[in-house]
C-alpha cells in the first residue's frame, strides 16, 4: 500500500514538473529521461525488497520504462 502511494506521489510530482516546464521541449525531454531512469531504479529496488528480483523482472521494468520514454519522445519531437 505504502509503495503504491509512493508511486502515485512521484507521478504527481513529475506531472507538476511537466506542467511548470511545459513550453521548454529540451527540459521536458530531459525530464522524460529522468522519469524513465527513476522508474527502472524504483522497479529494481522494489523487486529486490520483495525478493522478486530476477533478470526477467529487470528486463520488464526496462522495457516498460523504454516504452513510456518512446511515447513521450514521439509526442515531444513534433
Amino acid at each position: 500500500m505504502f509503495e503504491s502511494m509512493l508511486v502515485i506521489g512521484f507521478a504527481i510530482l513529475f506531472l507538476i514538473l511537466f506542467y511548470i516546464f511545459r513550453f521548454d521541449k529540451n527540459i521536458l525531454k530531459a525530464l522524460s529521461l529522468i522519469i524513465t531512469l527513476f522508474y527502472v531504479s524504483w522497479g529494481i529496488i522494489h523487486s529486490a525488497r520483495e525478493a522478486r528480483l530476477a533478470p526477467s523482472v529487470v528486463l520488464e521494468y526496462l522495457l516498460f520504462g523504454l516504452t513510456g520514454y518512446s511515447i513521450l519522445y514521439l509526442a515531444l519531437s513534433f
Binding site: 509503495e3 503504491s4 508511486v7 502515485i8 507521478a11 513529475f14 506531472l15 511537466f18 522519469i35 522508474y39 524504483w42 522497479g43 522494489h46 523487486s47 522478486r52 530476477a54 526477467s56 523482472v57 520488464e60 521494468y61 516498460f64 520504462g65 516504452t67 513510456g68 511515447i71 513521450l72 509526442a75
Partner: peptide, 20 residues
C-alpha cells in the same frame, strides 16, 4: 505470475497519457 509491479506500469503509462 512472477512479474513486475503491474500497478506501477499502469501508473507510468497513465502519467504519460495525462501529460500528452
Amino acid at each position: 505470475k512472477f512479474t513486475g509491479h503491474t500497478f506501477a506500469h499502469i501508473t507510468l503509462l497513465f502519467l504519460v497519457i495525462f501529460f500528452v
